[in-house]
């Protein structure tokens, strides 16, 4: 069986990606230097643990899908995933490497297990993954990934309970896949932020740090929370925090926290939390 060696939750935002490119070219803005420094420990964790593959639960921001058909839960099954053009043109990064065998395997397991996925054999990926990946992994990005995209752009979005269950189903599928791969499960979603309406720019650092303090061992308290509470207190896009429950669901109870970091550069709370999973 494959083994889930750990996982991490991490924020994403378009500016995180743009500031990386600027930072590398001419030095980081001080606010983003903090985030760059804060992500060094995760990069080190990935360098040391060298997962064979990563399952990444993220959300698209109308950069691949559109409302002709917007899947509530979708999986990417393709040898590679190109970068989406979000309107400013693509950034200078390679496509992501997919894992077709694992993708089909997980599709079978998850659909038979009650998660009716939309299967995408062509999937362009936006800042949901491209904004943070350069901070934590050197190119070429040759670690194969299986991306799972969750609707976060139009309500109704999946419940927190359901996303936690998806994580559990991901773990069950991986444990049964007949290989010896060491796999990291990742969730990525913005923390507190709101990018439309007069509440634009809301920043609830207290809420975000509280969330980080609970996601390890007290996550059930977070899952029980109505998503509207996260949105009311942290901004509408704080609902993306519900994505982090999939990462947590894919980990066992036998975890230890490796590292946690949090800062608020501009519009979005930027947090990262990393866990080792010790269950065999």
């Amino acid at each position: 069986m494959s083994r889930v060696i750990g996982g991490f939750g991490i924020s994403h935002t378009p500016s995180m990606g743009m500031e990386y490119d600027k930072g590398m070219a001419q030095g980081f803005d001080p606010r983003w230097q903090k985030w760059f420094d804060g992500t060094r420990r995760l990069k080190q964790w990935l360098d040391e643990t060298k997962p064979d593959k990563m399952v990444i639960v993220y959300n698209d921001h109308l950069n691949h899908f559109d409302f002709d058909a917007y899947p509530t839960i979708a999986i990417g099954v393709a040898p590679e995933f190109r970068q989406a053009d979000e309107g400013w043109g693509p950034r200078p990064f390679p496509s992501l490497v997919g894992d077709v065998d694992l993708g089909w395997y997980m599709t079978n397991k998850l659909v038979r297990g009650g998660y009716d996925l939309t299967v995408c054999q062509d999937l362009a990926i936006d800042h949901g993954i491209y904004s943070w990946l350069p901070y934590v992994m050197d190119t070429p990005w040759d670690t194969p990934i299986v991306p799972i995209a969750i609707n976060m752009v139009r309500h109704p979005i999946p419940t927190s309970e359901r996303l936690h269950g998806l994580g559990k189903a991901i773990r069950a599928a991986l444990e049964d896949d007949g290989s010896n791969d060491r796999i990291a499960v990742v969730s990525t979603g913005g923390m507190s932020h709101q990018i439309s309406g007069a509440r634009f720019g809301i920043a609830n650092e207290t809420l975000d740090e509280w969330f980080l303090s609970k996601i390890g061992n007290d996550f059930s308290e977070l899952i029980d929370l109505p998503q509207e509470e996260l949105m009311r207190l942290g901004g509408t896009e704080a609902a993306e925090l519900a994505l982090w429950f999939s990462m947590r669901g894919a980990l066992s109870d036998n975890i230890s926290e490796v590292y946690r970091y949090y800062t608020f550069p501009a519009i979005t709370g930027c947090g990262v939390i990393v866990f080792d999973d010790h269950a065999v």
Binding site: G201, N204, E205
Partner: peptide, 24 residues
């Protein structure tokens, strides 16, 4: 977009952000 929504100029909004609140 945010500044238009919030009824101010982009510069004003940038100066105001992050608009810190504290609540759990």
């Amino acid at each position: 977009i945010g500044a238009h929504n919030a009824g101010m100029s982009a510069e004003e909004l940038q100066a105001l952000c992050p608009r810190k609140v504290t609540a759990l």
